[in-house]
Design a protein around this nucleic acid. Structure first.
Lengths: 327, 327
DNA sequence: CTGAAAGCGCTTACAG
DNA sequence: CTGAAAGCGCTTACAG
């Protein structure tokens, strides 16, 4: 690896001039050309580590997520990556498995590697951001809040739960269950609240808790709870899934029992990119995960650039995509 | 951020001693204790950038893949991450979208960030590794070869294609199509070769090319080709999907037409973690993607540690998981 | 075991 | 516009 000194020597200039060329600082035309030519000959690439050490900031941003195997988060990651890459930043994907210790480790690494900033889907509402804030690194929350007064992008979760439920009501279903994620995850809770509001309004005599289930945001969680609901003396005739994976698990069980939607109505908050049903067979409230990533990345880049306006929270709305009756 | 100098001062030792403590080099018990205490008080974390610049090597490995939204590659990433993290390395996930330019950029970044090594699922068989090799950074190929004499982990693709096809033959199907990925991607080609071998042996009179289709390794590719095959004057009664996404797309079409497996036999090379059918409804030749990641990461760590034995290629076998007849 | 000192490859205030 | 020089925070050969 050639260094700035070798390039300088070959080009007959000082190392400072070489540095300026690579940082877009004004330099006379002749020197510019000479440096370019020398760099080309030596296949010079600036050493990012040295630059980072000197500037105390790297062109890397950390994306910290709880589950890399959930397509919702990979879609989010795509959005982040697209924006970051165009701005010359690379993205380190950090998977926490919802474990606070793993998350803390990654945040520590972000500090000690001088990463430019962090986009964080917090493992828990007790995530500690004191150190990263003390280090002056901007953090943008995605999907979930953090308890800190920082920029964030979230989905309109209550509204999504509501839209999913209302659609099932309109379609004529009367016993509509709700399967959502852990009570302590705000997205899970809010989507359930949306469901509950519709149930309370439409079926004032119903006991909402009878058909509400908290589970994990995973395929097997959806399976278990769906099976349990079907065992009920008076089983539901429809269900709202609090996220994509729960929806997948629940639909698997329904398919196995010959209850494929619309026999039992299903509305999923999220998307099913790998459904083996027709993509239009299930009602979705599609969440713009990619857009969330794009928005968060843009906000983060603004903060990295020094923007110090008060913290903003952007709320993104899901989009109802009703199931098409089978052709 | 406290530095080694501040810790040294507080502990009453030299910076060199502090460094030694954090690198596990022998130090007297009293100094060890003093340094530890001082570091604790100052919340000292070693600056990784400085260490990297000095040592010319960072504790980061790059995982370069063509499609971050394909669960096969996220599963692979999980395996890599698990091993890497335990060894104190972090993983940068680099998504190339199968574009050589993006891939080249990431490889360049790996060099200029002094990353310890690269795990690469190459975007193409023309990927250029000259620079990264010249920089002395080890590269381990996964999923696909590279044309370079380096360590690699691949699936037994031909055998997988064969096993999938043989299973359909045993189940009584007679016109078995094959939908695979781009001809130039070796995994796509080899799986098709496995299919072809079985067809040639079992149905010597058949024209194999009639039912073989190259497409993209994507859901919509599977959809298109499946639709096309069903339009045939004499449509197939079964099909082998060359990867998970093709399988998803093809099954979507079949479900829409009321041809859900086993009405039309389906065997997929790969897994369907988000199928909305019963997980046991489709025959799979499951590919150990996670294990591939684990193996590749271990090999890479060995190379990083200085191992210079001749290049090895590990071949991992898929596992046939026959569809269970509907209960 | 320990410390002083050099050096990893850059960037940038300073002086011209 | 340009260069000499300091310094980012470590690690490590060297000498003791």
């Amino acid at each position: 690896m050639a260094t700035i000194y070798e390039v300088a020597k070959l080009a007959g200039v000082s190392p400072a001039t070489v540095s300026r060329v690579f940082n877009g600082v004004a330099v006379s035309d002749e020197k510019l050309a000479a440096v370019r030519e020398a760099a080309r000959q030596l296949k010079f690439t600036p050493n990012r580590t040295a630059r980072t050490l000197r500037k105390q900031e790297s062109e890397v941003i950390a994306l910290v997520i709880p589950d890399i195997e959930n397509p919702y988060f990979t879609e989010l990651a795509r959005g982040v990556e697209d924006v970051a890459q165009k701005a010359g930043y690379s993205v380190v994907l950090c998977n926490t498995d919802s474990q606070l210790e793993k998350e803390a480790t990654y945040l520590q690494i972000a500090i000690s590697e001088h990463m430019a900033g962090v986009i964080l889907a917090a493992a828990s509402d007790t995530t500690n951001l004191d150190d990263i804030q003390a280090a002056g690194r901007p953090v943008v929350a995605v999907d979930r809040g953090t308890g800190y007064d920082i920029d964030g992008v979230v989905m309109a979760n209550r509204m999504a739960g509501q839209a999913a439920t209302e659609h099932l009501v309109r379609a004529g279903y009367r016993r509509i269950a709700c399967i959502t994620g852990p009570r302590l995850i705000e997205t899970a809770y809010e989507r359930a609240q949306g469901w509950r509001a519709v149930i309370a309004r439409q079926f004032p005599d119903a006991d909402p808790d009878e058909l509400l289930r908290y589970s994990t945001f995973r395929v097997d969680g959806g399976r278990e709870v769906m099976e349990e609901l079907l065992e009920l003396p008076e089983p539901p005739d429809a269900m709202v899934a609090g996220n994509n994976l729960l929806g997948v698990g629940a639909i698997q069980v329904l398919t196995e029992r010959g209850l494929t939607p619309p026999k039992l109505g299903v509305a999923v908050v999220g998307s099913l990119p790998f459904t083996t049903l027709s993509p239009s067979a299930v009602t979705l409230v599609r969440l713009p995960a990619r857009h969330m990533g794009v928005t968060a990345a843009k906000m983060l880049l603004e903060r990295i650039a020094g923007d110090d306006q008060p913290a903003r929270t952007v709320v993104l709305r899901g989009e109802l995509q009703p199931a098409r009756p089978a052709d």
